[in-house]
């Protein structure tokens, strides 16, 4: 199969990035089987935070799977992203229970406060707002995940306040750094 030669030839990624070695290990573990594509994409998403073109080409080449298929598969599943997420992330659950308990109002509040809509990242790259289809914590609806921490029974006010605090803290740190 011919793959556009955006990465250098050879079996290893030319950048020498440690994360590619981890991908290689995973590939070896799964015996380079074509079936393993989804597993590898999952690992890649976890390691890199997003799937770049270079990364997808590398995976296609290593697995000997057509690049078109790799791209088709990656765009099918919603957990894969193609642009880096912000430094801080806010995932809002919009499952039925959370919907009934007002998840939409939380989304609106966050969107207003940060001037981004769901699935977007602020221009300064500090904050991303994502939407999840049920995190399975329905007993505690509405549920919000701020920087990986699951928080139940939230209100628009508590979420925006906490999110604003985290981002403001990062901004301060950036200002100090520069």
């Amino acid at each position: 199969m011919i793959v556009p030669n955006k990465t250098a030839t050879g079996n290893q990624h030319p950048s020498g990035d440690e994360r590619f070695k981890k991908i290689d290990n995973q590939l070896r573990r799964l015996k380079y089987e074509k079936d393993a594509l989804l597993e590898i994409l999952n690992s890649a998403q976890e390691l890199f935070g997003y799937l770049s073109e270079d990364l997808l080409i590398y995976i296609a080449k290593q697995l000997h799977v057509p690049l078109s298929r790799v791209y088709g598969v990656a765009t099918f599943y919603h957990m894969f992203t193609f642009e880096p997420l912000g430094e801080h992330t806010c995932i809002i659950c919009t499952g039925t229970a959370c919907h009934v308990k007002g998840a939409n109002r939380i989304i609106e509040a966050i969107s207003d406060k940060f001037s981004i809509s769901a699935g977007e990242t602020t221009p300064d790259g500090l904050f991303s707002l994502t939407i999840a289809r049920c995190l399975g914590s329905c007993g505690l609806a509405p549920v919000v995940v701020l920087d990986g921490q699951v928080r139940g029974k939230e209100t628009p006010e508590t979420v925006t306040r906490r999110a604003w605090e985290i981002v403001a803290f990062s901004k301060d740190k950036q200002a100090e750094g520069s």
């Binding site: 011919i2 793959v3 556009p4 997808l56 690049l67 078109s68 791209y71 088709g72 765009t75 099918f76």
Partner: peptide
């Protein structure tokens, strides 16, 4: 390959690039 999902899905080359860059 068909790219994306549902109503927004469409037939595309890798990364929606020009035909000549594909296989």
């Amino acid at each position: 390959e068909i790219v994306g999902r549902g109503f927004e899905s469409h037939v595309a080359t890798p990364f929606d690039g020009p035909m000549i860059d594909s296989t």
